[in-house]
Each structure stands twice: as structure tokens, then as C-alpha cells.
Simulated scan of single mutants.
Amino acid sequence: MIQILAPILIGLLYAGLNSFIAEPHRRRFNAVVVGGAGAAYLSGGALGPWELAFCAVMTYVAFRGLDSWTFIGIGWLLHTGWDVVHHLKGQPILPFAHDSSFGCALCDPVIAIWCFTGGRSVPGWRTAVRGTPVP
């Protein structure tokens, strides 16, 4: 159960901590982070040249994410798929943690959903739920 809950909580914590970064810096910071996530598996090389191709795709998506939360969300969903492939192949993102790619595949969609909602800060979530500005 902890293997499922912990990654989801990490995704929520990531979104919450991003509340401390003001826009437009929050979006740009997240574009850089998702670009870095695209290179996370390079050192393992489990999928050979496909690792480089994926990194190139993620670089493009991250670049587009500099101006678009949607592209950042797409990047996290692409990374989710890459996590699943590596988990099934037995080549985890952290070689010393067998289920790390599985956990990453649960965490990344949580972040993607947050990105698809515009990467709102926690006060922004409250505003959206209540429909009134936060004092």
C-alpha cells in the first residue's frame, strides 16, 4: 500500500511546494524540471538509441512548456510511459531501488494533472473551488 500512496503523496507535495514560486517563474521552472526528467534514464541505456530519441522529444516538449502548462503536462505523461517501459524491462530509474520506476509512473500523472489545471498555487486551488478570491 505504501508503494502506491507514497508516490501519489510525493506528486501532491511537489505541486504544493511549487506554490512558493511565483508565476511566470513557476511554469518556466517546471519546464526545466520536465526537460531534466527526459534525461533521467540516459545513464542506464536500457533502451539503447531510443533513450536519446526520447530525450530529444522531451527537450522539445520542455521548450514548448516554457510558454505552456499543457506541454509540461504532456511531458509528464510521456515520462510516465517511459517509466512503465523501464519498470517492465527491469531497469529502474534508481538502480538501487527496484520499484522506483513504478513509483515514478504513479507520481508523474499526479504532476501532469496539476499541470493541465494550469499549475495553480495552493491558494489558487482554493479560489477555483470556492469561486471567490482568497483574502
Rank of each mutant, 00 (worst) to 15 (best):
P92Y: 10
R26Y: 04
H98V: 13
I8N: 08
I10K: 06
W69V: 08
D67V: 15
S19L: 03
L12V: 08
L88F: 11
F63V: 11
L42M: 11
A37F: 15
H86M: 00
S68M: 00
I72N: 07
R28H: 12
L42S: 11
D67S: 15
P49C: 13
K89S: 09
F102S: 05
P49V: 15
C55R: 12
L47M: 15
A53G: 12
P7H: 08
Y41F: 15
L88N: 06
P109I: 05
G48L: 07
I8C: 10
F29P: 02
S100Q: 07
P24H: 05
Q91P: 01
M58G: 03
P109A: 07
A53Y: 12
T59E: 10
A31S: 07
I21V: 14
G65M: 00
K89V: 08
T80H: 08
S100C: 05
P92N: 10
G11H: 05
M58H: 11
R64T: 07
H25W: 14
D83S: 07
G75V: 01
R28F: 11
P7S: 07
P95N: 13
L17R: 00
D67R: 15
L78K: 07
G81L: 05
H86N: 06
W76K: 14
I8S: 07
P24I: 06
W76S: 11
S101W: 01
H87I: 12
H25D: 10
L66D: 11
S19I: 01
G65S: 00
N30T: 09
A40H: 06
T70V: 12
A112W: 02
I74K: 03
S43E: 11
V61Q: 10
Y60H: 10
A37R: 05
R27S: 09
F29G: 07
G103M: 04
W76T: 09
F63A: 13
A112L: 00
S19H: 04
V110N: 00
R27C: 06
T70N: 13
P24V: 01
F29T: 10
